[in-house]
């Protein structure tokens, strides 16, 4: 399976006096089975990029290849429904899209829409509810009575009910408290590691990139300016500085120490390991 963007350009309002080129000549390959972060400033084209993955947007020119599906400007994928089942897209603030009377109906809506029988769809709803960490007692409750974090879990369960191979998340933790955000990230890690789902996440949170993601794609003004492993990314101080991102504190600390001439193994990103390393480096002799 492959996920590839080839010479992709996307222009909004193309045939109007105010065209806006959101993505310009993007070539990008995203690896299967891993957890990839898409980062970049607001307006850099992150959301536009990921919305091509299930043909919600189609290219102005160039193409997107997801496995057997080829998405171009002339035609949407030959079988859009199959593509949408393969690629689950979770928007920003997905809880705004909940609409059914009960949580069970809301989660079962997707599978039913794809032709799954009522009972099987309900069964799926129960499974997905458990997967996102809520018990059966929620099934008959209204999704609107829940907290923000719980509502978001329900919305994500609705996407997972279609059993996508690729899960695309657009700022999935925005507006959640730190505890809620952590639980959400642990859920995605589980989906990646235990259920082998490819996870593509748009985010601004560098702590999450550091602790959960394997690859990093950096967008700037509609172009992919860097693709690398998270490990390389957090050792590339020049790049980090150019991006004006809020550095994870541990990276900030490492850099401060390195600037003072203290040697630190670039592979270390964990506080405990860093403390041990410093002990080796400073206490000897």
């Amino acid at each position: 399976m492959s996920i590839e963007f080839k010479a992709l350009t996307h222009t909004y309002n193309e045939k109007t006096p105010f065209p806006y080129v959101a993505l310009h000549d993007v070539d990008l390959e995203i690896k299967e089975g891993i957890f990839t972060a898409i980062i970049g400033e607001t307006g850099s084209g992150k959301s536009t990029l990921v919305q091509h993955l299930n043909a919600l947007l189609t290219p102005t020119s160039g193409k997107v290849i997801v496995d057997d599906f080829i998405i171009t400007s002339e035609k949407k994928a030959k079988d859009l429904k199959k593509l949408r089942k393969k690629v689950g897209l979770v928007f920003q603030f997905p809880e705004y899209q909940l609409f059914e009377e009960t949580i069970e109906k809301d989660i079962a809506f997707g599978p039913k829409n794809f032709g799954v029988e009522e009972e099987a769809a309900k069964k799926k709803a129960r499974e997905m509810l458990a997967l996102v960490g809520l018990d059966d007692s929620y099934l008959n409750r209204s999704p609107f009575d829940l907290s923000g974090g719980q509502k978001r879990r329900i919305a994500i369960a609705g996407i997972l009910a279609l059993d996508p191979d690729i899960l695309v998340l657009d700022e999935p933790t925005a507006g959640l408290d730190p505890q809620g955000a952590k639980e959400m990230m642990q859920l995605f890690t589980k989906l990646n590691k235990e259920f082998n789902k490819t996870i593509i996440m748009v985010t601004h949170d560098m702590e999450h990139v550091l602790h959960y993601c394997e690859d990093v794609v950096v967008l700037k003004k509609g172009k992919v300016v860097h693709t690398c492993s998270a490990n390389e990314f957090f050792n590339n101080y020049d790049l980090l500085e150019q991006l004006h991102v809020a550095l994870p504190k541990v990276i900030e600390f490492k850099k401060m120490l390195q600037d003072k001439g203290i040697k630190i193994n670039p592979e270390i990103f964990d506080m405990h390991e860093l403390a041990l390393e410093l002990k080796e480096e400073l206490k000897h002799g």
Binding site: M256, H272, A275
Partner: peptide, 26 residues
């Protein structure tokens, strides 16, 4: 971070800013 450092045997006065921790280590 200071807790981790104390746990592995470092001894220095508690600092409220990272600069202070770096200074102590130096």
């Amino acid at each position: 971070m200071q807790k981790e450092l104390y746990n592995v045997g470092f001894e220095f006065e508690k600092q409220l800013e990272l600069e202070g921790v770096v200074e102590s280590l130096c």
